[in-house]
């Protein structure tokens, strides 16, 4: 198994692992940000260039450094490779440049954007960007369009990560949308008069790192940090039915896939991504449709977990509640509170 050194930490990883995934296995601040790479989507990555890293030693066999920064999401590790990420000031400067490029034509309409609070571009700008802009021209704008009955496209916010195109390609047979035009007027669009209407098309909303694709059944209903995410499941014929529901009171405001710490869809025990179908996402908006498993794990640094609950104490509460209910004949269903389910 090849050994790779990233920011002076060495890790042994399976053959064919990319630098980005090796860094993710290691965790910590050395993980490069990724806007277009999505581990559950094949051939994604390589476009946004935010995950660039400096390779100062190619491998044990060929120790020459790579002449240019490489996209860590598409470069496999070699045995003895030495990678610099946050330890290289040049590289951080280069990454700040990429962030600047992504932001010069971004509308920065976070106050009215539904993605605010869970937007990867916000995090990226906060962590790697500069406070002031040097761009003094008019920003590029597009008209908002509905690209299907459930999805709204704000092309102005798009960073052309191609993730939604990969979802359409890999999950929705007979894809009807893609990228048209080229250069900085390239846009995501559907084929002439086609609308996106596929069982799994809703997953495009979840893979979108910015607020370009938003859920039409949730738009402007609430800021995400005012809703409470719960992991829940239901019986579904089309998908695994394991989703994350976002509650306000007892009302389900929206349903998304369960996301892991990298903002990507969680996988089941066999490693298959837990995509959800449109029925689960758009048509089951009652709390009684779902069996709630408990609050979702959200990073404590995220704005979503602000003012909510401390998960550690909440877990204690679950145990307490169970004890209380033990022996009582209460219809508890399939949730974790039911001691019969343990």
């Amino acid at each position: 198994m090849p050994k790779v050194t990233i920011d002076n930490q060495t890790i042994e990883v399976p053959e064919g692992t990319t630098i980005l995934n090796a860094a993710r296995m290691m965790g910590g601040p050395s993980v490069p940000p990724a806007m277009c790479y999505y581990s559950s989507l094949k051939t994604s990555g390589g476009y946004c260039r935010t995950c660039i890293v400096k390779v100062t030693k190619g491998s044990e066999k060929d120790p020459r450094p790579m002449p240019k920064p490489v996209a860590s999401c598409r470069t496999s590790v070699m045995d003895g490779m030495v990678v610099e990420n946050i330890t290289s000031p040049d590289l951080l400067e280069a990454r700040a440049g990429v962030v600047e490029f992504l932001l010069i034509n971004h509308p920065l309409d976070c106050p009215i954007c539904d993605q605010a609070g869970e937007c990867h571009l916000q995090d990226l700008g906060y962590e790697n960007g500069k406070a002031l802009t040097r761009y003094k021209f008019r920003r590029r704008t597009f008209e908002k369009i509905d690209i299907g009955p459930y999805i709204k496209l704000h092309m102005t916010r798009c960073i052309l990560c191609y993730r939604c195109v990969k979802v359409a390609e890999q999950l929705c047979p007979g894809r009807v949308h893609g990228v048209i035009n080229r250069g900085d007027v390239a846009e995501i669009s559907t084929y002439i008069t086609e609308a996106i209407d596929n069982e799994f098309s809703g997953n495009m909303i979840d893979v979108c790192p910015v607020g370009a694709l938003t859920d039409r059944t949730f738009r402007f209903k609430s800021r995400v940090w005012f809703t409470k995410p719960m992991d829940a499941h239901r019986k579904c014929k089309t998908c695994a039915g394991k989703a994350r529901i976002w509650l306000k009171g007892s009302e389900v405001l929206r349903v998304t896939v369960r996301k892991d710490e990298w903002g990507e869809v969680q996988r089941d025990s066999e490693g298959g991504p837990l995509w959800i179908c449109n029925e689960c996402r758009f048509h089951t908006k009652k709390a009684s449709d779902w069996i709630i498993e408990g609050p979702s794990e959200i990073s404590r640094h995220s704005v979503i977990s602000a003012n909510h609950y401390d998960l550690a104490t909440l877990k204690l509460d679950v145990a307490k509640q169970r004890k209380k209910l033990e022996g009582k004949k209460v219809l508890l269903g399939e949730g974790p509170l039911n001691p019969n389910n343990v």
Partner: peptide, 21 residues
């Protein structure tokens, strides 16, 4: 170059237009 950039990766897509402006 601004006109001919394919728009796939961000530095070229955004940077060429900026330089032209």
């Amino acid at each position: 170059y601004h006109h001919e950039s394919c728009g796939q990766c961000s530095p070229c897509r955004e940077g060429t237009g900026w330089m032209e402006k």
